[in-house]
Structure formats: C-alpha cells, structure tokens
Amino acid sequence: MAISLNKMNQPQDVVYEQFEDLAQQQETYVIGMWAFLVTEVMFFGVMFMSYVVYRWKYQPYFYALHQELDWRIGGINTFILLLSSFSVALAVHFHQKKKKMQTLACLGFTNLCALAFLVIKMLFEYIPKWNHGHYPGPGFTWDNPNIPGNIAQLWYSLYFGTTGLHGLHVLIGIILFSVLMFMIAVDHPAITDYLPTEMLGLYWHFVDIVWIFLYPLYYLMPK
C-alpha cells in the first residue's frame, strides 16, 4: 500500500485486550504517564534541593558565580524550548484531528528545536567552559581570587549535574520523537490513535518545565 502523507492509514482506535473501551484506555494511559512524571519531578527535585542547600550556605559566592553564565544564551534556549513545547501541543491537536502532514510537521519542528537547544548548549556553554578548565575534577582551573576554588567546583558540579541530566532528557526526547515520526510516517500499525503523541508530548512539556525553573535559578536570579 502506498504511503500517503495526508491521510493516516494506521488501524484506527484500537482498544487493547485488557481494556473495555477507548475512553478507559486513554484515561489509564494519562494517569500512568502522570504517575511516571511524578517520579521525574522527584528525580529533578534532588538536583534542585542540592542547589538550594548550597546556594543558601554559600550565598555570596554563588551570587558571584552566577555571573559565569550568560543570560542571553540561556534566554534563547528558554525561548526555543517554549516554542518546542507549543509545537508538541499542536502536534497532539493535529493528531487528534488525524491530520498526518501537520502532525509530522509539528513533531519535526519540535525535534529541530530540541536539537538547536543541545547545539547551542554545547557550542556556547559546555565547550567554552571545558576549554577554560571549568569542569569539576583534578583538571579544574580557577583564577578568580575572590571565590575559593572548591566552592567554584561545587557550583560547577551542580551546574553540570543538573543541566547534564536535563540535556540527557532532551536527548532521549529527540530519539523518541524521531522514532515516533518514523512510525507515523510509515503508518506503523502500532500507532492506533493520538495517545503515543500525547504521552511523548507530556514528557516533553515536563522537560520544558524543568528548564522553566532551571533558567531563573542558574542564570537570572542573582543579577
């Protein structure tokens, strides 16, 4: 069968054998996903909590250390993630209306944003910092006499740990979105309704929410 870009040709609205009807199946998936997101919140919660404890303990140093980050780059990335979140919401909207082209376009745009986010982070933040020797470990170099080197390392540990975990989530998102797009594009029989898009969308919005808190905490507040 030829693959059309405009029509969804998958089997539609299949109810798995453990469910009674579609509505039940859909609500169950949403609850399951939210229960999983609860674990994700607690997961990042530890990173935020560590940050809060040390920032509170070393306030003056941490305030000074925040100058290490450029709010413009962070701001651009914030906006990129907002856009991607929006386009995922749109993708769900279109998938619900069974518009294949638009769904794919929105998902593609999301993936592009996610990629841009990672590239910007790498090129303008991680790599320059790495080149300056600003990474935790024995190779850490520090020449600001006003801030003790160990505190700076602690701060960089938090920064790399938290943004790294967030970046990992972005990476996982990119992979999952690519798989999903492929499956939708070739009318894979496993995609029977908009739920996969919605589930992945929920995950992606969560990644955005993490950044919504991360950005002011690391880039903005101390200014």
Binding site: F19, E20, D21, L22, A23, Q24, Q26, E27, V30, A89, V92, H93, Q96, K97
Partner: peptide, 16 residues
C-alpha cells in the same frame, strides 16, 4: 469496565 468510564469519555476526546 470502570465506574468512571462513562464520564471520562468527554474528557479524553477534548481537543485544545
């Protein structure tokens, strides 16, 4: 199957 099934119906088909 679930007692909620009937009125959950309107929720899950909501298109924003």
């Amino acid at each position: 199957m679930s007692e909620h099934a009937s009125h959950a119906h309107d929720h899950s088909h909501h298109i924003t």
